[in-house]
């Protein structure tokens, strides 16, 4: 049973997410074209490629690794997603400074502090058709699973499942934040691109944990 994520696995998470963003670039951009400005896939792809290029490969401090990710996303993603994901990982990196591996409690802390940062920066709550609609249910599901004494992998699986449900739950929502908010009623019927990229990021981390479990 996997009990910790190593600093090496955190680096793999970033590398793997870059591949996932590249593969989903068109899907994310199409979702954004429906209710935004059709650049989310391009922006996330560009941002994660930059993050991989800047990765401190021999760094063992997870805080420093996440800070490097944050800085790359802030400077390369642009739009609203850049500062939001940048703030997510910046806050998480501050909370995890000095850790070389992440326990269940650390991953919960990562989600908690990251989400608090996004809420502060974006002035958003749950239910506004944003990335928070995937992230908040994920954090809650993770905490519930951990409370039950589930393993790290099981906690992450629960979080990803909740993020997926949250992502799909954005379809009937009316956007009240960001560029989609100007559509009002017309924003209904479309899945939020930010919630979708958040789901993909979490799903990638979960898959890495699952591989770790298989290997051990």
């Amino acid at each position: 049973m996997l009990t910790v994520l190593t600093h090496r696995q955190v680096i793999v998470w970033i590398e793997r997410t870059a591949e996932v963003m590249k593969a989903n670039r068109d899907t994310l951009t199409e979702l954004d074209a429906a209710i935004g400005d059709a650049d989310h896939g391009n922006n996330m792809d560009r941002g994660y490629q930059a993050a991989v290029a800047k990765l401190p490969g021999d760094e063992t401090d997870v805080g420093a690794i996440l800070r490097s990710l944050s800085m790359a996303l802030i400077s390369k993603v642009g739009g609203a997603a850049g500062p939001l994901y940048g703030t997510f990982f910046l806050q998480a990196s501050n909370a995890l400074k000095g850790r070389t591996e992440l326990t269940e409690a650390d991953v919960e802390r990562l989600l908690e502090t990251g989400i608090d940062g996004v809420m502060m920066r974006g002035k958003a709550q749950a239910g506004e058709k944003t990335m928070l609609d995937a992230l908040i249910p994920a954090r809650d599901a993770f905490a519930t699973a951990r409370g039950r004494g589930a393993s790290l992998t099981d906690c992450l699986e629960a979080a990803t499942e909740a993020a997926g449900q949250g992502m799909r739950a954005t379809i009937p929502m009316i956007a009240t934040k960001g560029r989609a908010s100007y559509l009002g009623e017309r924003s209904r019927g479309h899945q939020d691109p930010g919630a979708t990229s958040s789901y993909l990021i979490l799903k990638t981390l979960t898959e890495i944990a699952q591989e770790g479990r298989t290997a051990s």
Binding site: G82, P83, T87, R121
Partner: peptide, 11 residues
């Protein structure tokens, strides 16, 4: 006043 501009200029 666009969401992205406001946040990027704040940072």
């Amino acid at each position: 006043n666009y969401t992205g501009d406001v946040m990027n200029f704040q940072m």
